[in-house]
Design a protein around this nucleic acid. Structure first.
Length: 106
DNA sequence: AACATGACCATTA
DNA sequence: GTAATGGCCATGT
């Protein structure tokens, strides 16, 4: 219960991202019903301890892997994405136009 | 309570 | 393309 429901909502959205696709923090925030709260998404993912959530599919609006304090997870994230077929350019960026997850309306 | 920090973003110049 | 600015808000000191 140290965990707010808001986070669970965010995790639920991240879990819907299909393999081989990526989503931005702002996109997740909006889909989770928390518009303009992209930072809270990043915070929620940083606090994440649930291994069922594909956190690596969430990148920033520039198409880059957001740099963390420690350099370890960054490379892991890139490797996981490449393994799913997500391509990075020479500058370490993903083409959002190509790989961005576009959920269908309901 | 104030203040700083953080896996962010859109807008403007 | 870069830089500055405002918005957002949980968490820790």
């Amino acid at each position: 219960m140290t965990e707010p429901k808001r986070n669970a909502r965010i995790y639920a959205v991240v879990r819907r991202i299909p393999k081989g696709r990526v989503a931005t923090y702002g996109q997740i925030a909006e889909l989770a019903g928390l518009p303009r709260q992209a930072r809270q998404v990043g915070y929620a993912l940083a606090a994440l301890r649930d291994g069922r959530v594909p956190w690596h599919r969430v990148i920033n609006a520039r198409g880059e892997i957001s740099p963390r304090a420690e350099a370890g997870p960054d490379e892991l994230q890139r490797e996981l994405l490449e393994r799913e077929g997500v391509a990075f350019d020479a500058l370490g960026r993903v083409s959002l136009a190509t790989h961005r997850w576009q959920p269908r309306l309901r």
